[in-house]
Structures are given as C-alpha cells and as structure tokens.
Design a protein around this nucleic acid. Structure first.
Length: 287
DNA sequence: AACCAGGCGCATA
DNA sequence: TATGCGCATGGT
C-alpha cells in the first residue's frame, strides 16, 4: 500500500533551512522522546545535535522551524529524509485518532515524529540501551562519538565507523563504561564491517529475514532488532516492546493495537511509549 | 542505600 | 517453549 506523501515548502536562508510550517515536528517531543540520544537542549531552548556524520542546530521561532548550520545539499541529501518530512503525518494521525485511547496519546504529544536514523548508529544505540537508562545511554554514546568519531564542528563528532570499532577490543572501549555491552558493540562492528550483516539491505528484505540477520549479532535480541529496523531502516510496521510498552499495552490496549494503527505500528508505538512514560508508574509495583 | 534501567545469553526443565 | 538468573555501571 503506498504511503501518503506530501512535500512541505522549504526556504533556503542565510541562517539555514527554514521550514515554514513548524508543525513538521516538535523539537522537544521528537528529539527527546527516547528514540535518538544525541540531541542536546540548549539554555535558549534550541537543540544541537548530530546524526550519522552531520551536525545541526534546530531552533523554533514563531511558526517556523530553522535547521541551522546545514547546506541545502545536506538538507536534500540527508535531513529531509532523517526527519521523514515527506510522510503525511496529518493523514496518519487522523487514522490513529479513530481509536479514542490512541487519540489521547496523540493529543498528549502531537509533534512526535519517528526519525529515520542511520542504520549503524541506530543498531549501536539500541545495543547500548539494553538494561540501561536514558541519561546513561546518552553518556555512553557521547563518549563513543567523542573517542572514535571524526570531528565535525562545535566540538561535536560523527558517529564512529563500523570498521573503526571492528578493530578494537573490549579493553579499548573501557573508557566508555558500557559494561557488558562493549563486546556486543565490537561484535556488531565486525559483522557489519565484514559484510556478514548488510545493513543497507534491511530496509527492503522480507521482515522476518531482516530480523534474523540482525540477530546474528551477539547482544541483538528481539527488542534491539525491532528498534534497529524501526528507527534505522524505516520499517514503520515494526513494534518494539520494552518494559514500558508492555505495561502500556496491558493497561491501555489489552486487546492489542487498534487496526487503525497497524500499517504504522512503529509510529503508533512512539506515541504510546511517550504517553506511558508520562502517565504510568515507573516501578514494578504497577497496581 | 537499595532498586532499577527502551534486554540478552545461557542454563535448565 | 518457557522461565530464571547474572550481567557492568550508575541514575534516582
């Protein structure tokens, strides 16, 4: 089924790329909702961050969204896809709202967009995320980029190449303080660098085949594979189930995800995840 | 100061 | 197939 698309008007200005419609996405809701870990909010409310090998500054001004520090080529070649600006979220959210509870989750943070991240970065990020908390995940990823990623600008670094990490040992990664995940990162790097796992193919492979391919990597189980496919490979039908999503589904959708959400299950998941984190008790003592 | 974290690998039944 | 445990580290 072809997904609805739309093409937002974009203006190239000396400060950067201007999205005249700020409803393209909401920075707080999208950049700090647990899907990407390299965006930092500045005291003035803007965001600085990096994705893959590129740096960007995002400022909300009035009805506009400014993507600063990038060229038009960067925008067309990368950021447009990263923010998934050609997907018609209006139509998707309209479908979601047909379910009353899902409508509540959408209304809580209607500016959430699922980012289309680099597959290698997403894979590593969610390997690091396992049995971990978000502040520490961010710290580990920051040290990983600072230690082994090429320098970009403003002290920001690219995400390290797989072949760079493939040559390292767990002892080399000790400064990361990633614990038992260090050897998982190295195994992922080696399998990607050697071509045993071809990340570029995962976007088009039959889904079950893509899952199995990722799970050849030590430290990649059901959940990490699902996150990699959703956030890193554009597979919006994927539906990561972590502890929060399990609680949320038990509480909110005991009969399963509503049919109106299924074509974009992963996108619905992001709204539910964010809603749950702000509305459900975090402890194991969940009434 | 415990408890827990956007899980996974492994052993056991 | 289904549990249950240990795991490195540190945030709350």
């Amino acid at each position: 089924m072809p997904l609805p698309t739309f093409a937002p008007a974009v203006e190239n200005t000396p400060q950067g790329i201007l999205l005249p419609d700020s409803s393209a996405f909401h920075p707080d809701q999208t950049l700090d909702c647990g899907q990407a870990f390299r965006w930092e909010k500045q005291p003035d409310g803007s965001y600085r961050g990096a994705a893959g090998k590129r740096y960007c500054e995002i400022t909300q001004q009035g009805g506009f969204l400014l993507l600063g520090g990038i060229t038009e080529e960067d925008f067309d070649g990368f950021w447009r896809g990263y923010f998934d600006l050609d997907r018609d979220y209006g139509a998707i959210l309209e479908s979601f709202r047909r379910d009353p509870l899902l409508a509540r989750a959408v209304d809580f943070a209607p500016g959430i967009r699922v980012l289309r991240q680099d597959s290698w970065e997403a894979l590593c990020s969610f390997i690091i995320s396992q049995n971990n908390n978000i502040p520490r995940i961010k710290g580990i990823i920051s040290r990983l980029c600072g230690g082994w990623g090429a320098e970009l600008q403003n002290g920001w670094h690219a995400f390290p190449e797989a072949k760079t990490l493939a040559a390292l040992t767990p002892a080399d990664l000790a400064p990361l303080r990633a614990g038992f995940r260090a050897r998982y990162l190295i195994d992922a790097a080696q399998k990607v660098a050697s071509g045993e796992v071809v990340l570029e193919d995962l976007a088009v492979m039959p889904l079950e085949e893509a899952r199995n391919s990722l799970r050849r990597i030590t430290g990649v189980g059901v959940k990490v594979a699902e996150c990699t496919l959703l956030y890193g490979c554009g597979r919006v039908e994927c539906f990561p189930m972590d502890v929060w999503m399990k609680r949320a589904m038990e509480t909110l959708f005991p009969n399963g995800l509503p049919a109106c959400a299924r074509p974009w299950a992963g996108i619905a998941q992001q709204f539910i995840f964010h809603y749950a984190r702000h509305h459900i008790k975090p402890s194991a003592a969940r009434d």
